[in-house]
Design a protein around this nucleic acid. Structure first.
Lengths: 237, 237
DNA sequence: CGAAACCTTGACTTAGGTCAACAAAAGTGG
DNA sequence: CCACTTTTGTTGACCTAAGTCAAGGTTTCG
C-alpha cells in the first residue's frame, strides 16, 4: 500500500518513478549560457501553438506535454517530455505546439538569439533533437499500427526506466519484477497521447487489472505486477 | 492528358511537381565538409533498422522513406523525405529506421565522425532536425486524430508546394486552382505512411475521384481539380 | 458537505479492417 | 511484339475494434 516515495502525494519527487534523463541536464544546463530557471505550477501553459517563438526551454524537473489542436477541438499530445528534454524550437517564428506542464516543473529558459551564437549549445541541441526524433518515430508506429492494448502497454512500459521502447534491456532477471508508476496524466491526456478515447483507455486499464497484469492504486498510480508480461503486450516482442 | 514534364515517365525530373526544399541544400551541402555524392536506384535500401549508424545522409535529389517494422510484419513509414532533408542520425550506435529510396536518388554521405567536428554542420543539423520534428508533430496529429479521408487529403496537400501542412498560404486566388502530382509511392507505401490499409487508401482515392475532387491519370499520377476543395477535407480548416 | 472534475461501465454504432475475387499494369523471355 | 507471369490496384461482402452516448460512481477540493 505505502509507496517508496514517502511524502505528500502529488508533490514530493519520487526518484524511483521518474525515468533516467536521456540528455544529461546537469552538464548541458542552459545556466552556463545565460539561461534562467523558472518554476511552473501543474497544468500551466508555457506557450501556445501559434505564439511567436522567443525562447528555448530545457526541462530540468517535472513533466511537460506538447500538443496540437485541430479547429474542431480534437487534440493530439505529440510529446511527453522528461527532465533533460528541450523544447521551443519551432523552425519558424511561431511555435508549432502548445506546451503545458503535467506536474509542477522547473524549466531553464534561454533566449533564442543566445542559441544562435553558441556552438556548444548547438551541439547539445543536435543530440537532444536526435533523441526526441527517435521517440517520435516510435510513437508514429504506436499511433499508426498498434492496437489499443498495445498502445497502453507501450505507454506504461515507457515509464519504466530502461524497459519498453528504444533501449529495452529485456527481463532484468527472475525475481518478482514488479514496478510502481506515477502517470502524472489524466485519462484524457493519456487518450490524447495514444490516439484513443478516454473510454477506451479506461477499458484497457480495467482489463489489464482484471487479467492481473497491473494493480491500480489510484487513477494515476499503477503497480506493474510483472513488467515482463506487460512488455509482451506492447507488440514489440 | 499530357503532363508538363514532357519526357520519359518515371524518369525525367518534374520541377513543378517536387516541393520546394525546406533546408537549402546548395548552401549546406556536405560536399564542402568532405561528403561524397552517391546515386541510388528506385527501391534501394540505404541502410536497415538496427544496422550500425556510420554516416549522415543528405538527400539531394529524389525521394526517400524511413520506416520501422514490428516483429509480426506491420510496417509504419515514419518519414517521407525530400531534397534538403537529412537522415541517418540515430542518437545511438544503431539506426532506428530502415531508409529506402522511393525514386532513384542522389545522396550526399558524410562520416559521422566528421559531423562531430564541424560547428557549421551542427548548425545546419539543428535547423534541419527542427523542421523534420515539426513535420513529425503534424504527422502525429494525422495518425492519432484524423479520419481516412482527412489523412489522404492531407497527404496529397503536402505534395503541393506551399499548401497544406505547416506553411499553408490558403487559396492562391481565384482561377482554376488545379495541380498535377506524382506520388512516387505505391498504395501499400501510402497506406503504411498514413496508418491505413491498402484497401482503405484505394477506396478513399476512388471516392475523391467519384466526387470530382481529383482525377487519377495513373495510379501514382493524380490531378487535383481544385486544390482548395481538397484542402477543406484535411481537417485543418 | 456539496460541487466539480474525473473515471468507469454498459449498450449500441460505425469507420475502417479482413478476406476474397478480379482487373489492370508492368516486367520477362521467347 | 506477344503470351505469360508477377505485381499492383480496385471493389464487394462481411466483421470487429474502437468510438459514441448515456448513466453512475469516485476523487478532489473549496
Amino acid at each position: 500500500m505505502a509507496y517508496f516515495d514517502a511524502g505528500t502525494p502529488g508533490q514530493g519527487a519520487a526518484p524511483r518513478m521518474t525515468g533516467a534523463p536521456i540528455c544529461t541536464p546537469s552538464k548541458t544546463s542552459f545556466s552556463e549560457f545565460g539561461g534562467k530557471a523558472v518554476q511552473y505550477d501543474t497544468h500551466a501553459v508555457i506557450y501556445y501553438e501559434g505564439d511567436p517563438a522567443k525562447r528555448l526551454y530545457e526541462l530540468v524537473k517535472g513533466s511537460v506535454m506538447l500538443y496540437k489542436l485541430l479547429p474542431d477541438g480534437r487534440r493530439q499530445v505529440v510529446e511527453v517530455l522528461r527532465p533533460g528534454d528541450i523544447f521551443g524550437l519551432a523552425g519558424s517564428d511561431e511555435n508549432d505546439c502548445t506546451a503545458e506542464t503535467l506536474t509542477n516543473a522547473e524549466i531553464q529558459e534561454i533566449d533564442l538569439k543566445q542559441v544562435e551564437r553558441s556552438d556548444a549549445l548547438q551541439r547539445t541541441l543536435t543530440r537532444c533533437l536526435t533523441n526526441q526524433m527517435r521517440v517520435l518515430h516510435e510513437h508514429a508506429v504506436l499511433l499508426g499500427r498498434k492496437s489499443a492494448v498495445e498502445r497502453v502497454a507501450s505507454f506504461l512500459m515507457h515509464l519504466v526506466p530502461d524497459r519498453g521502447g528504444v533501449g529495452c534491456i529485456g527481463p532484468i532477471d527472475d525475481s518478482d519484477d514488479g514496478f510502481d508508476l506515477r502517470l502524472h496524466m489524466t485519462r484524457q491526456e493519456i487518450a490524447d497521447y495514444l490516439g484513443l478515447t478516454i473510454e477506451t483507455v479506461s477499458r484497457v486499464v480495467s482489463d489489464l487489472k482484471r487479467r492481473g497484469v497491473i494493480r491500480v492504486d489510484r487513477a494515476d498510480q499503477i503497480h506493474l505486477n510483472k513488467v515482463c508480461s506487460l512488455c509482451q503486450m506492447t507488440g514489440m516482442h
